[in-house]
């Protein structure tokens, strides 16, 4: 049995706590990095807000080719920054060699 976690600032993650997810209140990228290092195996899905994810892309990429955990970017307080969508775009470029889905 796995769990789900949300990493982000207090304002955005508190609501998820009510739904029974584990929340981690990270103020800086380093906090988030430390959390991933300590606890990544316990979770099947980890949601992280985009602004934090942008600071630790190197760590997140390390998990990209593992089955678990899936680290998924979600918009934080500031609204969507488009970083999550960039990730989708990147995997298209990786697989196809060119961006054929987002050309429009």
């Amino acid at each position: 049995m796995y769990k789900m976690a949300v990493i982000g600032d207090k304002d955005t993650v508190m609501g998820f706590q009510a739904l029974g997810m584990d929340v981690f209140d990270a103020k800086t990228g380093n906090d988030a990095k430390q959390f991933l290092k300590d606890a990544a195996e316990k979770y099947a899905v980890i949601y992280i807000i985009e602004s934090l994810a942008a600071e630790i892309t190197d760590v997140i990429e390390r998990y990209a080719e593992k089955q678990i955990p899936a680290i998924i970017l979600i918009p934080g307080r500031e609204g969507s920054l488009g970083i999550g969508m960039d990730g989708v775009k990147k995997s298209v470029e990786k697989a196809v060699g060119a961006d054929i889905l987002f050309k429009d």
Binding site: G15, I74, P75, S80, M85, V88, S91, V92, L101
Partner: peptide
């Protein structure tokens, strides 16, 4: 990946709405 893109758009707007009401 097409599904991924649609889901992401949907989730992003829904979370933004939820965040707004949370604020």
């Amino acid at each position: 990946v097409r599904e991924n893109r649609e889901l992401r758009e949907k989730v992003e707007t829904l979370i933004e709405d939820a965040n707004k009401s949370f604020v």
